[in-house]
Amino acid sequence: MSHPGCGSNNIGMKLPMAAAFRLPGRHGYAVEFSPYLPGRLACAASQYYGIAGCGTLVVLEQSDTGIHLFRSFDWNDGLFDLTWSENNEHVLVTCSGDGSLQIWDTIQPTGPLQVYKEHTQEVYSVDWSQTRGEQLIVSGSWDQTAKLWDPTVGQSICTFKGHEGVIYSTIWSPHIPGCFASASGDQTLRIWDAKAPRLPVVIPAHQAEILSCDWCKYDQNLLVTGAVDCSLKGWDLRNIRQPVFSLFGHTYAVRRVKFSPFCATVLLSCSYDFTVRIWDFSKLDPLLETVEHHTEFTCGLDLSLHHPGQVADCAWDETVKIYSPSSLVISA
């Protein structure tokens, strides 16, 4: 069976198969490759495991000799997530434990360009819309609300209420303008339309807190959730009565899930069991590979858009790692 984009070669500069960068005194929560610059990625990290202390945005460059620090920015509370701007290659947004979002310009070694502080508890998720004609940010908070932000406006433009628990993940649809998903401690996945914020689609996706969700890049109706019950589940929005796939293998909570940008049926997950797992839900035996190279909770995970098969992750063990899992190294 062939799937869109499954036969792509690495492009651009020659990179090492694996590299690591240490974050002394900082514990990684999220990592994301730049959508514009092939060698750049960023990590949102926190002091004292995010329970207390400050946070640091670490911007990294990878080259044929490894990973190097490009720039770092400190914030006075832990940083839990980040997202690159989709219209400016130098701009990043982070979110933190003090209820605020920060917009940074990575070529300016100063404080944030803007700070938005409306959430009343920790902000655990932030995402920048990828659909054409939109430049919107969505955030999800422990205050049980999601908020919509326009970077040209100094305040939120819409608040989404309905979850009955902490919101852990908010992710824009890459297909449908104004549509995003949220995953919550109330055990539901919700699909929101910015034009009708009071009428979400509510999916009782797990019988446990849901920590992460993501949209398939090739199917506008397909999402995946990862939860405290150690499972991943796939959801088709045309029939939400039961999952279209369920994936088991993790031994602790699934912290983050990501669909491949190059293969329609491949996705990755990372977990509090210290592992990253690579899956192909179209196969009878869907677990392709288990990566065990961290010694603490693995919280951040992303796949490069520029180098197919390349993955970055970060963990509470104070490291960011970039590598090319054997199951994703596909010849043309």
Rank of each mutant, 00 (worst) to 15 (best):
A196R: 15
Q102F: 14
A42G: 04
F297K: 14
I203A: 05
S304E: 00
C263K: 06
L223F: 04
A253D: 10
D214L: 06
G12W: 03
L268A: 08
T65W: 09
Y218M: 10
E209T: 11
I107Q: 15
K258W: 04
S324T: 15
A205T: 05
M17E: 14
E289D: 05
F262G: 01
T298G: 06
V329L: 13
L136Y: 04
P38T: 08
L113M: 10
P35H: 08
I240Q: 05
S85I: 00
P243D: 01
G162L: 09
Q310R: 14
L69W: 06
S72K: 14
I322W: 00
Y272M: 11
L303E: 08
V311Q: 01
G39K: 01
R26M: 13
C230Y: 12
L148D: 01
S260H: 01
L199G: 09
A264W: 05
M13C: 12
K321L: 09
L223R: 00
I51K: 14
T56P: 05
V59N: 04
H206Q: 07
T152K: 13
Y168T: 04
S96W: 08
D143S: 07
G78T: 05
K283E: 15
G99R: 03
R190I: 04
D105Y: 06
D219A: 10
L69F: 06
W142G: 11
I67W: 03
L79F: 02
S326P: 10
S46P: 05
S156C: 12
S46W: 04
V153E: 11
S141N: 10
M1V: 10
H163L: 11
T319A: 12
T120A: 15
G12A: 06
S8T: 07
E209A: 14
E61Q: 11
Q130W: 13
H90D: 15
D317C: 05
G53D: 03
A315M: 10
C230E: 11
H294K: 09
I67N: 00
Y124K: 14
V228E: 13
S271G: 04
H175P: 11
P325E: 00
A227C: 09
C158M: 12
I137D: 08
W149Y: 07
G140E: 02
R256N: 11
Q62S: 07
